[in-house]
Simulated scan of single mutants.
Amino acid sequence: MINNKYFAEFIGTALLIMVITGSGIMGYDLSRGNSGIALLINSIATGIALFILITIFINISGAHFNPLVTLMFWADGEVSNEILIKYFLSQLMGALLGIIIAHLIFYLPIIQFSTKIRSGYTFWISEFISTIILLFVIKHFSNTNKNLIPLMVALLVATGYLFTSSTFFVNPVLTVARSFTDTFVGIYSTDVIGFVIAQLFAALVFVYFFKKKY
C-alpha cells in the first residue's frame, strides 16, 4: 500500500502519461493511421485511467498529478511551499519515467524528440480555456462533493480531447514529457513554451478570481 504522498504523485503521474502515450501508440497502430479513431481510443483510455488513478490516490496525495492543481490548492492555503515544490518535482520525474516505460513496452527508442507541430494562437486559447475549466471542476467538487472528483475529472478530460483543438493537455509536466515522444501524442519542443505559458496564465487568472471567492 502506497502511503507516501510524494511517491503517490510520482507513480500516479508516471502511470497517467504511460496510459496517454501507450493508448496513443496503440490507437494509431490499430487504426492504421486514422487520427480520428486514434484520438477516440486515446481519450477513452485516458478517462478510464484518470478515474482509477484519482480514486486510488485521492486520499493519499490528493491525486493532483498536475502542478497547476497543486498551485491552486497552495493558493488556498491547503498546500505548503515545501509540498508545492516536492509535488512538482515528483510529478515531473514521474512524467518523464512514464514516457520511458511507454517506449520500452512498445519496443520504441527510449530517447525521442517529437516532430509533431502544435503551434498557433488557436492552440494557446484552447489550452487557456481548457485549464480554466479543469481547475473550476476540481475546485467545485472539492468544495461540494469530493467523492465525485474522480468521475467528473475523468469525464471532462475524455471529453476535452474531442472538443478542443489542443486536445486538452492542461498540464505543464505532461506537456514537457510529451515533447520526448515522437508518437501520436507528442508535441514539438518549441511548441511546448506556448502551451505551458497558456496553462500557467490560466491557472494564475483562476487563482486570482476564485481564491476565497468560490
Rank of each mutant, 00 (worst) to 15 (best):
I2E: 14
N4Y: 13
N4W: 13
K5R: 15
E9R: 12
A14P: 01
L15Y: 13
L15I: 12
L15G: 00
L16K: 12
V19H: 10
I20L: 10
T21G: 01
T21S: 12
G22N: 11
G22K: 03
I25R: 07
M26T: 11
G27F: 08
L30S: 12
S31C: 00
S35K: 12
G36I: 14
L39T: 14
A45W: 11
A49C: 03
I54A: 03
I56M: 09
N59V: 04
H64Q: 09
F65R: 11
T70E: 08
M72N: 09
W74I: 00
V79W: 09
V79C: 02
E82F: 11
E82S: 12
L84H: 11
F88W: 13
L89F: 15
Q91K: 12
L92Y: 15
G94W: 15
A95L: 04
A95C: 03
G98F: 02
G98K: 06
A102I: 05
A102Y: 05
A102L: 04
L104P: 00
P109H: 13
I111C: 01
T115R: 13
K116H: 11
I117L: 11
I117T: 08
G120V: 10
Y121V: 13
E127T: 06
I129T: 12
L135F: 08
L135N: 05
L135T: 04
V137R: 05
T144L: 07
T144S: 10
T144A: 03
K146R: 13
N147C: 00
L148V: 04
L151R: 09
L151V: 08
V153S: 00
L156Y: 06
L156P: 03
V157E: 04
T159G: 13
G160N: 08
F163N: 09
F168Q: 06
F168T: 08
N171K: 14
P172R: 10
L174C: 07
D182T: 07
V185G: 03
G186E: 05
G186M: 06
I187Q: 06
S189Y: 15
D191A: 08
D191K: 07
I193Y: 14
I193M: 08
V205G: 01
V205P: 01
F206D: 05
Y208I: 02
K212A: 04
K212H: 13
K212T: 06
